[in-house]
Design a protein around this nucleic acid. Sequence first.
DNA 1: AAAATTATTTAGACAAATCTAAAAAATGAG
DNA 2: CTCATTTTTTAGATTTGTCTAAATAATTTT
Lengths: 224, 224
Amino acid sequence: MVNYSTSEENHIKAIFHLQTHSGNVSTNELARELRTKPASVTDMMKKLRDKKLLHYQPYQGFRLSTEGKKVALGIVRRHRLWEYFLAEKLKFSWEEVHAVAEELEHVSSRKLIDKLDEYLGFPRFDPHGDPIPDTEGRIRYNPQICITALELNLPAQICHVSDQSKELLELLEHKQLRIGTKVEVKKKFDFDQSLELRIKTATKQTASVMISVQLAQNIFVKHV
Amino acid sequence: MVNYSTSEENHIKAIFHLQTHSGNVSTNELARELRTKPASVTDMMKKLRDKKLLHYQPYQGFRLSTEGKKVALGIVRRHRLWEYFLAEKLKFSWEEVHAVAEELEHVSSRKLIDKLDEYLGFPRFDPHGDPIPDTEGRIRYNPQICITALELNLPAQICHVSDQSKELLELLEHKQLRIGTKVEVKKKFDFDQSLELRIKTATKQTASVMISVQLAQNIFVKHV
DNA sequence: AAAATTATTTAGACAAATCTAAAAAATGAG
DNA sequence: CTCATTTTTTAGATTTGTCTAAATAATTTT
């Protein structure tokens, strides 16, 4: 197992994130993401290409190799486990977590991370709802679950409604619940199994919403 | 609050540790400690002198300034808190703890360390028994305590016996308990308040020793 | 399709941290 | 006290990661 410098790791991680959206990643795109200059990116790309971490032909953009992806997943795993630790154990707020994890993720002891994982109880999602890769770099993707089965306070996103009738959609619309809406269950009322949700609207405002069990049974979410 | 590079921090820390023993620290001494070359040390000393972290006249060795000591204590605090975390929470063994803490100590977020400190319950000693400086860099030195009051499994060292009679010394000698002997209390028996100790002899072997409450009340220790 | 614009790469420079080899200063042995 | 030895510093080179400015390639506009 080879070790990479902080700068190399940051480049690999950035390509990993950008490449999920578009296909190949361009020089300018990467330079913008890393707040560096295109010339510096080209230099680094040559080095990472020589180390067989990515595919790169001049003027063609970059794409991680299989090995490069493996390295990237290791970095992502470290980052997200630290985020979980910071939020869950040290009581950092969601916003603060990222910057500190950026530093901690470069500490390279494999044993440290595996023991941290164990200590945290093998969490599957970080505080932002992003999945945490396992020891082998596998991401255990979120299965769709009914919102009635969603754990309290776990960030999720509406991804499916099973009934597409006019009546249901009218109700959803009224409550500002749409595919893609970010949602957490804040409370479950045993009396009528209604749910209190906290949603984040497209305009980034949060709001409280009550939904009946009849509605809830038709809403499916996945962890964000 | 300024940030220092990993290399600068390692130099400051090494001087801090060496200077407690001898007075001024010499170039060769420091180079040996850091597994680097004397020429490299000289270069770094000039830089740290310019940053007012230490006093350095060519050929005269180095000594940390007040500011330098403050920085060193910050690094030591981080190192020892991480050691405590690794041993206590992640169940690393004593030997493994140091190397990983060497990496973690350079993560610079002040808030991270203070929250970690709080999470750990403001421990005063790391797993090796070394004191952990507080937020202000103060080291709270070990008061002498009677071995009957020593927490289980906390490494300590015999520093005083209150009764100096021939009878007591004979017994201590027989049990290989001397001033300076490293000792931990492994078990306290409620029935007769006798203690089971684990001691490390001068020849670095460990042994189990049982002592009565009468004897224990005369043995004073401090955290190592 | 040529010109203009944009993106990318190359060339050369720089700072940080290290090294080797050589010079200079301090120390210590006779 | 002088000469040999040891310690420390200086001088100059190297590596890594970055930059600016200029050159080149690709893309878009007219």
